[in-house]
Write a protein that binds this DNA or RNA. Structure first.
Ligand code: FES
Ligand code: FES
Lengths: 150, 150
DNA sequence: AATAATTAAGACAAAAATGTCCGATTTAAT
DNA sequence: ATTAAATCGGACATTTTTGTCTTAATTATT
């Protein structure tokens, strides 16, 4: 929703950043520990842990338990996973399909007052989330073109 | 933010619907009472009252106190007010300017990992909110092309 | 086997968003 | 003036989101 922090919920922002950082390491076939992730994305440790658990359950990243453990994502997965999957995993199904004015379903046969204005924006967002892979984000961060914290 | 209800917060959705309904009546130079608004947009009475108060303070609609009171918006205002004003009034400044990943400010010289993907979407949204007037929404609802409740 | 390092999981806590209630205030009608 | 119909404004309540803490489970190392 649109709020002071922008388009995504905080949890979702954290998830995207965390996944991207794990992805950056995945490009070099390395795993990372929770502590390093939390520091790197500037997110509270315990809360980051919770979000990582969700990503693991959603089969986006994998966790390695025990000593020398951490979180990991393979290069194959990096290519496969789109941002849509991450947003879905955190905010649930239908996130960007929902009606702008809170109708049960966005329905072209009973369009809400904002339907025609919002639809193209939502479609563009959807397209972007589907067409952007985690690898795309991870590479840009790896090349210092983009960043995970201020 | 993107959540189950779509792009806007619930408060903001209610505000947009309420303003649109007051606007629909404004097209016929009529005022409406809180009760009718709440029913028409399917939003809790007391909560709707709070949101209307914000719209009044933001100088988007006017309130008429006392018996035979209600809420009103002039045809002139209807033309002048854009959706941006309403979103601003409820979610505060900078709503759609915020960084997608929660950076203090969206800053092209230190772009977050989603900056380049999200920027065009945000720009499109901004443009739409600025270029859509309350009158546009009110007319469409008046013509039963679009709706305020399911 | 014991230890240390790590994630998993669930209970708990705090903060923010959403929603309710009630008395004060304003105004029109009688 | 009195009354009735409405908004205003602030305190309160509930729900959701965000965040913390503690204990259990898992694994590498010794
Ligand atoms: S019905 Fe509301 S966005 Fe389509
Ligand atoms: S810096 Fe995050 S959207 Fe621009």
């Amino acid at each position: 929703m649109i709020n002071k922090s922008g388009i995504f919920s905080k949890s979702c922002s954290h998830a995207l950043k965390a996944a991207t950082f794990v992805g950056k390491k995945g490009l070099e076939n390395k795993s990372v520990k929770l502590k390093e992730i939390a520091e790197e994305i500037n997110s509270p440790l315990a809360f980051t842990a919770k979000i990582l658990q969700k990503l693991v359950k959603a089969n986006i990243i994998e966790s390695i338990r025990g000593a020398k453990g951490g979180f990991f994502v393979s290069q194959e997965k990096l290519r496969q996973i789109s941002l849509k999957e991450i947003v879905f995993a955190i905010d649930g199904e239908g996130s960007y399909n929902g009606c702008a004015l809170g109708f049960e379903k966005c329905n072209a046969s009973k369009p809400c007052a904002l339907h025609f204005q919002i639809l193209p924006i939502r479609e563009k967002l959807k397209e972007t989330l589907i067409n952007t892979s985690l690898e795309d984000l991870a590479r840009a961060v790896g090349e210092n073109t983009t960043f995970l914290k201020e």
